[in-house]
Design a protein around this nucleic acid. Sequence first.
DNA 1: AAGAAATTCAACCGCTTGGGT
DNA 2: TACCCAAGCGGTTGAATTTCT
Length: 184
Amino acid sequence: MRKPCCEKKDTNKGAWSKLEDQKLTDYILKHGEGCWRSLPQAAGLLRCGKSCRLRWVNYLRPDLKRGNFGEDEEDLIIKLHALLGNRWSLIAGRLPGRTDNEVKNHWNIHLKKKLSMMGIDPDNRRSLLSPTFTKSNASNDSSSACQPFNPATASGAISSTCLPDLNLDLTIAPPLSYQNLALN
DNA sequence: AAGAAATTCAACCGCTTGGGT
DNA sequence: TACCCAAGCGGTTGAATTTCT
């Protein structure tokens, strides 16, 4: 049996109150992020650390954009999802001010539907309207069946043969921190 | 106006990962 | 190498809100 992430009794659950938000924000602005396990007690919150982290990351962070997704953002999500699959944190990392939770919700609520309406299977990018899509639009190699991208089996080069007209002009760059390291 | 159904999104749960020992 | 623990991640849930009948 797995240990609970924190002592369940004496911790609040459910929606956060304004006071709790304030306490958490104040504490993090003062002391910075980190050590989520001990944070609730230090900040005077009756929450588990996990809950605090989630609240901060998904809602309270000052750099969050919030509000509706722009068309360019949706476009990018669709492209990145085609490339990365359900790796929401990676996708969100390329959308400044957006969280993985937000991206995931937006995908499940809006973009899946949008792609379906366009006749595209959101899960594997197959055309729902034309079963011959892969043959007529993709490579001549009929043996390369259209498969969702699998990072475990991918070997560097990513095939776009399964993707209908998504204009995948993406390049993968290492995160900024790596780039900085490389420069030094 | 009221109730039902659908939609949205914040939050939780449990598994995985990565660092330390 | 094996184990432990904290943090991170993605899937799922459920309450609140909106839309429909």
